[in-house]
């Protein structure tokens, strides 16, 4: 998992509450054998005018021109500004996979569904929680200014606006540590790589046959 320290990027709006994971990535795309490549189908039903199918190329599909993510001004956005209870519904990890693959690095909302919140951290996606009033203010500023960017600073736990206004947010220390260092479960275990190597060396001395290669 890549480390997250600071991220500055264009902000795009999903201006409604209770966005569920079905909306983020519809069920027909779960048949995939992959964990990547869901970005093109992120928000599929909102984004396109037709019904998407797995393995279908999205080039040439009719776009919904009323959907903000299709507006020219939000192209290349990497911070998603949204509202309460984001990511509710099915527990599919495909939701954070899709958002991350689309290009989002951080989400800002006043609250999240539990499982989605957890899943996001496992995939290097930072869900920031800010007070509803602040979220309102950010929406206003974003709508008013094309190319509006926010700086999300995980080290100092702050979201900083283009004018330099800083809003602090909270995050439990363990999650912060993992994300700052790019550690997932595997990353954490790999912090013990020395112990694993040492164990392996003893094992090899004691039971060399365990290291006969599987070959051919």
């Amino acid at each position: 998992m890549k480390a997250f320290t600071q991220h500055k990027g264009i902000v795009a709006p999903m201006d409604r509450a209770n966005i569920d994971t079905d909306m983020i990535i519809p069920k027909q795309f779960l048949k995939s054998i992959k964990r990547s490549g869901f970005g093109k189908n992120c928000f599929d039903e909102l984004r396109y005018m037709d019904e998407g199918q797995p393995d279908q190329s999205c080039e040439g599909r009719p776009l919904n021109v009323d959907f903000p993510l299709n507006f020219p001004r939000y192209q290349g956005a990497s911070v998603l500004l949204t509202r309460e209870n984001f990511g509710c519904g099915s527990s599919r990890e495909h939701a954070p996979w899709a958002l991350e693959d689309y290009g989002f690095c951080a989400i800002i909302a006043s609250s999240y569904a539990d499982i989605f919140y957890n899943n996001s951290f496992k995939n290097g996606l930072l869900p920031v929680i800010l007070d509803e009033k602040i979220v309102d203010q950010l929406f206003e500023e974003m709508y008013a200014e094309e190319g509006y960017e926010l700086l999300v600073d995980l080290e100092n736990l702050q979201v900083i606006t283009p004018k330099g206004e800083a809003f602090g947010f909270e995050l439990d220390e363990f999650r912060r540590h993992c994300l700052l260092n790019g550690l997932d479960d595997i990353g954490l275990t790999l912090e013990d790589a020395d112990a694993i190597n040492a164990y392996e060396a003893t094992l090899k001395a004691r039971s060399p046959w365990l290291f006969n290669a599987i070959k051919g």
């Binding site: 998992m1 054998i33 964990r35 997932d184 275990t189 013990d192 365990l210």
Partner: peptide, 25 residues
Amino acid sequence: ALIYIDRHIIHEVTSPQAFEGLRLA
């Protein structure tokens, strides 16, 4: 606890996303 694994057997149904994850990281 961390337990060392001597042998890992793999089949086609439960491994694709694991390889994908490995690759992405």
